[in-house]
Design a protein around this nucleic acid. Structure first.
Lengths: 337, 337
DNA sequence: CTGTTAGCGCATTCAC
DNA sequence: GTGAATGCGCTAACAG
């Protein structure tokens, strides 16, 4: 494979200097229309493509944003990325995506690589913050914004929703429907937002309404459908059965729903089930899921906006933006009979 | 924001030449352990990160692969990317992903950008091939492999499944169940594989079994749940009703399923429904969907393997690899009563 | 308007 | 083993 065409080649063929070629290509300084045409013709004829590496090396801008997420094979993150892309696209940026599956090692590797590649900025969605992260960020200089989590030990802006309040709200909604025994399928506690905060919201709602928190009714899942199924199985093995289940994710809620359907339990007549996220799945299923809606695309948009802004201003800032959420009542919940 | 540290800075601080620093960083030539230690210490102390842009400029390798897909907010493509990442990750490559939403203009823009960025290779999943594509690829030099589609006018390897045969198989399966009136929710015909080929497989199966093709039973959708719902509504508005529906995607099948469930039709007793793809959705739903399983992660792996190989060998090749698929019988289909 | 030149940060040949 | 010098391809002064 022969060497790429360079600007020098174009300059020679057009009988001009490289500076002139650069000028017509970037519209950076006036060039006589005569020469301009000549250059453009040769460019088209040869299919010359400027080398973005060389350009970036000089301009100290790569026009690319790194996105570090746990797993994009998850509608939630896929939507987030779409939102991000909406903005980066509009600003002639492109995104480098990487799935970490929550592994801290991979996260740090990618941060490192992204620094070497001199990305303009990074969007990070992690689930937990370790000492290793903190150490790493000591000498870290790339503009970064966090999504889904907020690490107050770090000097990064973040965008989330109020997971505590949302869980509180939906639990209270179930209470208002007359349910007294409400189970929860929660996430792992190292996940501060989707795990811990959502559990806290649920517990707090119960306590404020003078209902006891029954630990037999609180089972941990890992946000998958399967784990929701198993969690429901476990909850249902108790002597006392709850009449409503709040799940920290739609997928686990679907798992619970399927357990019910497969075992002759009617939803919502026998058990009400509520989810969290409002993924496409939530409406694809019958009965459609009552859940907390959050707009991931919007979250991506907001995050990218902040990042681009951060890159522009070149100064550190740290704040948390909480996006709105809403409770969507569908067919999987009803008043306790 | 102050200038990045360069190799020169490290060299000065360590009292050695830049060449030496380069050597210890890349392990490219022996360096006395004394100097090596000194350099390494300073690197760690300062948090120096080599500039990958400069390195790539020299080595003519960026270590990044471009991925152009219609929409990663689609489990199918998300899985594909995961497969790709599995391989690129193992080979110290990183991926630049972009969603085109099927827009030819965006596709071409990205190809262009990826060329400028001197990516090592590109994986392309488009839905149709236009004259514009062909023109563009005239002067195109980046190693590229196609997934999901095969364009025999282009000199690129491709990996797909045999969509015609798979559709043929599942239609025949429905016929064997005793169904005589089988409807189909198809995709747009400009989508050669998922649209045209799957329709063809269906029609051919009917014809070979001497069943007439009834156009009232063939409705076009756009692969979304909603479009499947509407398509089913339309099919059901006919005087004569089919007893089985084959949908060119799981999502449209779910839409059809929901139409049935919402209108008191029992699945599979009243209508059998079969999908295509075997997404997570297919098992999340009740009744679970009979469908054609294809392993997207495996497809991504295979594609990336081929691409990396292509990059290595530096020679053009063109062939199509068809991955296996399988018919998975679940609860949404049964023998006609 | 146009051309010449000096780097951007690094890898690598060539001397020593 | 080590250092000095060249160039990867391009942009941005600097002259003219």
């Amino acid at each position: 494979m022969n060497r790429d065409l360079t600007m020098k080649d174009i300059a020679e063929r057009a009988g001009v200097s490289v500076a002139t070629v650069s000028r017509v290509l970037n519209n950076t300084k006036p060039v006589s229309s005569e020469l301009k045409k000549k250059v453009l013709d040769i460019v088209k004829e040869t299919g010359y493509k400027p080398n973005a590496l060389a350009r970036s090396l000089i301009k100290q801008r790569t026009g690319t944003i790194g996105v570090i997420i746990p797993d994009m094979d998850n509608e939630t993150f896929a939507d987030l990325i779409k939102g991000i892309e909406l903005i980066t696209d509009r600003n002639d940026h492109v995104i480098l995506v990487t799935n970490t599956m929550g592994e801290v090692k991979k996260e740090l590797e990618m941060f490192n690589l992204f620094e070497e590649k001199r990305l303009d900025g990074i969007i990070f969605s992690g689930v937990s913050l370790t000492e290793k992260h903190i150490d790493f960020f000591e000498k870290y200089k790339i503009p970064t914004v966090l999504v889904g989590q907020t690490f107050n030990k770090l000097d990064f802006p973040s965008v989330t929703i109020d997971n505590f309040q949302a869980s509180f709200d939906i639990t209270e909604y179930l209470i208002e429907l007359g349910h007294q025994n409400i189970g929860m399928i929660r996430g792992p506690l190292y996940d501060i937002q989707a795990g811990k905060e959502r559990l806290l919201g649920y517990k707090t709602a119960l306590r404020e309404n003078d209902y006891p928190v029954n630990n037999d009714f609180i089972i941990e899942g890992d946000f998958t459908i399967t784990s929701g199924y198993k969690a429901m199985e476990e909850i249902w093995s108790n002597e006392l059965k709850p009449t409503a289940i709040f799940s920290a994710s739609d997928k686990m809620a679907i798992g619970a729903l399927n357990y019910c359907l497969d075992h002759g339990l009617k939803v919502p007549e026998d058990v009400s089930i509520a989810g969290f996220d409002d993924m496409e799945l939530a409406t694809a299923v019958r009965p459609a899921l009552t859940t907390i809606h959050q707009d991931q695309v919007e979250k991506g948009i907001k995050t990218a906006d902040i990042l681009l802004d951060l890159i522009e201003k070149e100064e550190k800032e740290s704040y948390n933006i909480q996006l709105p959420y809403s409770l969507i009542e569908r067919d999987s919940t009803c008043a306790r009979k």
